[in-house]
Design a protein around this nucleic acid. Structure first.
Lengths: 222, 222
DNA sequence: GTGTTTAAGATTGCGAACAATTTATACAAC
DNA sequence: GTTGTATAAATTGTTCGCAATCTTAAACAC
């Protein structure tokens, strides 16, 4: 049995967070994870450093690692950034994507639809996020791609925190419409749909219910 | 003597890279750094993980950590991303910045000018980068701010690799003009100037081999 | 019953020691 | 002079143990 690398450990934890198996606020005990992955605590700590740098995990000194609970400010910043970046991704995809790439996107849509039909909610959430990751990959900008690989899991975390009773992460047909517009080289429409899509997700969140999560102690005791 | 945190170690190394005291390709030996910072190798390795995640350092398994030598593709992606993001930063700064914030920017321009007058080239390079970081900070978007704190040192690295014979990282007056336009709430002009500014930097680069120098750790981290 | 103090237990932070791997050196062969 | 190989040295990768800190629980006072 070969031991996993730090990145592999971080990826496994990221997957668990994206699928909501590790809800926001979960304690990540070093010993438990070291046992689960069959490695020493050192490697777990190193994986935590990676995850903390991406914002998925928050480290409290001497107290341990916890799955981040994004604040409303972070939520706003994340969606604002995605609305800035993903239109650019679409422009690049339209400029660069081959027919094979479009086929990959279509295949991904199939996977999403299948997961939806079988009511595999966790899989739906992850695949919805990975649709945006696939687009970022096809755009061919490594900097933006890396940024998206951080923002997508964070968005999943936000959905876990704030999502309404029956909201599926991303409405399926919106993804399909975006790909239709991309395939038609209609960047204006694709960008408009993407922006609307992101706004849909953000607006479906009921942030008000959880406003107590980001309390400004300074303003209270000033 | 209090021991530095992982982040402080990473920041010190980042500073050294930004000031071109650690040129691209430099080997970062764990023992040497552990001695320089008076900590165990464990913390140095953790700092490396942070720096590698930001792209400043490249880890070669069993061979060690090296200051990254950005490729031409990475250079293109970094500048493309900055041209996308920094106009948005300017919009936000114009929308949010107080007169105090403008004063901070003016003060920074003073610092830059002073470093230029005293021919402190390393300081000029770093301050030029930090001007963009200050703008990002004032924009108030933590996601974008974090991205810029990664892209700026990388840009310094690129300048170290590819800069021409006598190009000062950023022409001084361009920064001043951008602030003038921001203070006048003229976002169109400020954005145009910023894009032109970034293009200037990118276009001044010439693709040449870099010269590897010997590094004296004691003098750098005394 | 509520709240405080104290002690035991558990967890994290750190560094030293050991193992695995690479790099440097010496030397022989061609 | 170069190439190849074997050995030694140096460096990285990992584990383990100990100290510091936090958490829990029990004992105690009110």
């Amino acid at each position: 049995m070969v031991k996993p690398s730090i990145e592999q450990i971080a990826d496994r934890i990221t997957d668990a967070i994206m699928e909501h198996r590790l809800p926001p606020g979960s304690k990540l005990a070093e010993d438990k994870l070291a046992g689960a992955f069959n490695v020493s605590r050192t490697k777990i700590r190193q994986a935590f450093i990676l995850l903390a740098n991406e914002g998925l995990v928050t480290l409290h000194p001497n107290r341990g690692a916890f799955v981040t609970s994004p604040t409303t400010e972070q939520t706003r910043d994340i969606f604002k950034t995605r609305r800035l970046i993903e239109p650019e991704i679409i422009r690049d995809v339209i400029a660069r994507a081959s027919s094979q790439d479009i086929a990959r996107l279509r295949k991904h849509l199939e996977e999403e639809a299948k997961a939806r039909r079988t009511d595999d909610r966790r899989r739906v959430i992850r695949l919805s996020g990975e649709f945006h990751l696939l687009l970022a990959e096809l755009a061919g900008n490594q900097v933006i791609n890396k940024l998206m690989t951080e923002l997508c899991p964070l968005t999943c975390l936000i959905i876990a925190l704030y999502d309404g009773p029956k909201i599926p992460a991303c409405p399926e047909d919106e993804h399909t419409q975006i790909i239709d517009a991309i395939e038609a080289n209609d960047s204006a429409t694709a960008i408009k749909l993407m922006k609307r899509h992101l706004s849909h997700i953000e607006n479906e969140l009921n942030i008000d219910a959880y406003e107590e999560r980001d309390i400004h102690w300074e303003s209270i005791y000033s």
